[in-house]
Every structure is written in C-alpha cells, then in structure tokens.
C-alpha cells in the first residue's frame, strides 16, 4: 500500500482517538486530527490529504458545510482528496442534504474495523 494521509474530523475527542488508534495499525498511514470543519480546512490548506473522515454533526462548521467548502471553494477534487461522511444518522437523513453529493461515501456509526479497512484498501 502506498503512503496515505488521513484527516479525522470529529468534535468528540473520543471518536477521533478511536479512529486514530485503529489507523495506527497501518504504518503507511499518517493521521491528522481536527475537531470541527474550520480546523479541518486549515489542515487541508497546509497538507496534502488523501482521505477526510468527516463527522456530520459538529459545531462551528458541520460536515455538510465542510464538504461543500472543500469541493466548491478549495476546489479539491475527488481524485485528489476523498471525503467520507462519518455519521450516526440514517443514510436517508444524509442523502436528503443538498451537499450529500460532495461526499465520496458514508461511514455509518457504529462502524466496524472491516468497514474502515475496505475504504483504506481502496488506496
């Protein structure tokens, strides 16, 4: 597997730690963390990120707004940076949102290690 950079965005620290811990098993993965959309954009401006795991419900800037900004304002295409929504909401709720198309996929909480592995193995 090639070296990849992953940005984990979640306002709940425990959720971020869990994912970072799981990703720690992959030596090829470098992890970045952000606790809201705004922080995520700052990280994206400074670093080349291959995958963003973006929580939907967040203060300051939620997941939908962040995804929209990444695609429409930062003009980061899906070829450069994949953006996956991370949510405990039903998919219907996520799909209803007009910004849904900015995501490359949705990871439902609670997710399994296999689900996370499937996504990482695509790189």
């Amino acid at each position: 597997m090639k070296k990849i950079s992953i940005l984990v965005v979640d306002d709940f620290a425990s959720n971020r730690i869990l994912i970072v811990d799981l990703l720690d098993d992959f030596p090829e993965i470098k992890c970045f963390e952000a606790k809201n959309g705004q922080e995520a954009l700052d990280v994206l401006k400074e670093n080349k990120i291959d995958l963003v795991l973006l929580d939907i419900e967040m203060p300051v800037m939620n997941g939908f707004e962040t995804a929209w900004y990444i695609r429409s304002e930062m003009l980061l295409s899906s070829d450069i940076t994949k953006v996956y929504a991370l949510t405990a909401h039903p998919l219907e709720y996520v799909r209803e949102n007009p910004h849904f198309d900015y995501f490359d996929g949705v990871i439902s909480k609670p997710y399994t290690i296999d689900k996370l592995n499937d996504i990482i193995n695509k790189f």
Partner: peptide, 16 residues
C-alpha cells in the same frame, strides 16, 4: 476484539 470497536462507539450515539 473487533466487536469492542463497535462497543466503543455506543456512548457517542446515546449522547447524540
């Protein structure tokens, strides 16, 4: 062990 990963996420869902 993998199931624990799922268990680990329940409190966040309850919280929400």
């Amino acid at each position: 062990i993998d199931k624990i990963v799922t268990n680990l996420q329940y409190h966040d869902i309850i919280r929400q």
